[in-house]
Structure formats: C-alpha cells, structure tokens
C-alpha cells in the first residue's frame, strides 16, 4: 500500500520536473538545431523546428564576418590573467591578514572591507576615468589590471587560512621555513580546495564579464567574446542561423566544462554564495 502510494506520487513529481526540464533545455536544443539551418529555413513561416537540410556553412560564415577567434583569444588571455593575478595577490593579502601580526592590521582590514560596500556598477564611471587617465582604453591592461584586486577573494581565502592549525606553522618554522616558506609549504598546500573554488569562481565571473569590456574596448581586435557577440547581433542583423552558430561556438566549451565538473561547480556556487 505504502509502496504503491509512493510510486504514484513519484510519477507526478517526475511529470512536473520533466516538464520543467524541457522548458529549461528547450532554448539549447533550439540553438543546436538552428545552428545547422540554411537561410531559407530561418525565414520560413511558420518556423521550422528541424533543419530541412543540415548545413555546416554557418560556422565559416561567422568566422568570416567577425574576428571570432580573436574574441576567443582575448577572452582567454584576459580571463586567465585576471584569475591568476587576482588569486595570487589575494593569497598574499589573505596570508598577511590571517597569519601575521603587524601594526595597522585593523585599519588595513577596514580599508579592504570598505571596497565591498559599493557595487562595481556604481563606481563604473570614475573607474573608467582613471583607466582613461592611464591611457589604458582599448588595451589589455585596461581590461585586466582593475580586477586584479578583489576584497571578496581576499576575505574568502582569509576565512580558510585562519583555520589551519598553528602547530603546522610552528613545525615548519623549526624546520627553518621563513614567512614565505610557510605560505608556500604549509598554508597553500592545505588550502587547495578553497583556492580551487575561488579560481573557478573568478574565472567564470570574468569569462562572462560584459559591462566593463563594453565600455573599455573600442576596436574589434580588443573585444572579448561577450562584447563581440553583442556587436555581432547589432551589426549582423537578424541572421538568426549565424547568431546560433556563434552562440553555439561560445557555449560549447562552457557546457563541456560544466558537464565534466558539475559537482565541483555547484559546490563552488553554494560555497561562495555569489551569482555569476
């Protein structure tokens, strides 16, 4: 009796969840199918769901119209530099805040915490003007350097660094480790998980970063993938099949990483509590 009830119940749970899943995945399926449609299929009325003839033409056409490969490379260079630089500088700062005693610590902590008060959107204009003053508009420096600091990353790591037992540090000291020796041989090896999490988070955040690259780049050669895609729509008009091919090329690597590292990614999301 009990078992029959639960089967009946789970049947309706599955129906609800499955309907939801279809709604969630439908846009991806539409993109995938449409990336292979011919121009004729795109502008047919009523819309065709399946391509009448599958074509691979759309992909080279996109690459001809815009420097898509360049967008990709820019995104990779900018995002990797930000991730590597920001995580490295955050480790250094978090180490000082978590494990070292020095005069002015409270003041430094307050200063660094205060950077998190205002959202980036509020300080966008003065940030742009500073980068402009430096002559960094339309350069990699302009895209990278302002994001090498993140109060969030520092305090996220600090919170883990303080939990590492003092005994480990003392043992390393006896073995002749200096301050940096302790950081590289004790603190960092014991914080692989949080460092991995924050790296993944920083990477994903800046891979999709849009507003800043939009205002700071002028030439097509400097555009990152999101900005490049936006201009592709604006300049290419409603060539939907080409849009879908471009979108597919942008999404595929992310989807592969997601499917492979799903568990880790979801955990990292709940841990950092921030939305991409």
């Amino acid at each position: 009796m009990e078992a029959r009830k639960s089967v009946k119940k789970s049947w309706y749970v599955h129906l609800l969840l499955f309907t939801g899943t279809v709604l969630m995945i439908f846009p991806f399926i539409w993109m995938f199918l449409s990336a292979f449609k011919t121009d004729l299929d795109v502008f047919s009325y009523p819309p065709k769901w399946l391509p009448s003839t599958w074509t691979l033409e759309n992909f080279p056409r996109v690459l001809e119209m815009v420097p898509f490969v360049r967008y990709y490379l820019n995104s990779i260079v900018v995002t990797s530099s930000i991730t590597f630089g920001q995580v490295f500088l955050s480790i250094l700062a978090a180490y000082a805040l978590a494990r070292l005693h020095f005069p002015g610590k409270t003041a430094v902590t307050i200063l660094l915490l205060s950077t998190m008060i205002m959202p980036f959107q509020v300080t966008l204009v003065p940030m742009f003007m500073i980068v402009y003053k430096f002559g960094w508009i339309d350069t990699y420096q302009g895209l990278i350097v302002p994001f090498l600091f993140s109060g969030f990353s520092i305090f996220f790591l600090r919170q883990f660094f303080v939990t590492i037992p003092k005994d480990l540090e003392d043992a390393a000291k006896i073995d002749g480790c200096g301050y940096f020796g302790i950081l590289f041989n004790v603190i960092m090896p014991n914080s692989k998980a949080p460092i991995g999490t924050i790296s993944l988070f920083v990477f994903l955040t800046h891979w999709r970063s849009y507003l800043w690259p939009l205002v700071v780049t002028n030439s097509p050669e400097m555009r990152t993938l999101p900005v490049g895609l936006k201009y592709f729509v604006e300049e290419g008009g409603t060539q939907y099949n080409l849009m879908m091919a471009a979108s597919l090329m942008a999404i595929i690597p992310v989807l592969i990483v997601y499917i492979v590292a799903e568990r880790h990614l979801v955990k990292s999301t709940t841990l950092t509590g921030l939305k991409f």
């Binding site: 999709r208 979108s247 999404i251 992310v254």
Partner: peptide, 11 residues
Amino acid sequence: VVTPMVAVALI
C-alpha cells in the same frame, strides 16, 4: 546559470 549571458540572450 553557467552558460554565458550574452550567448543565451542571442537564442
């Protein structure tokens, strides 16, 4: 959630 905003907005 994980797919880039601009790419899915195009769809």
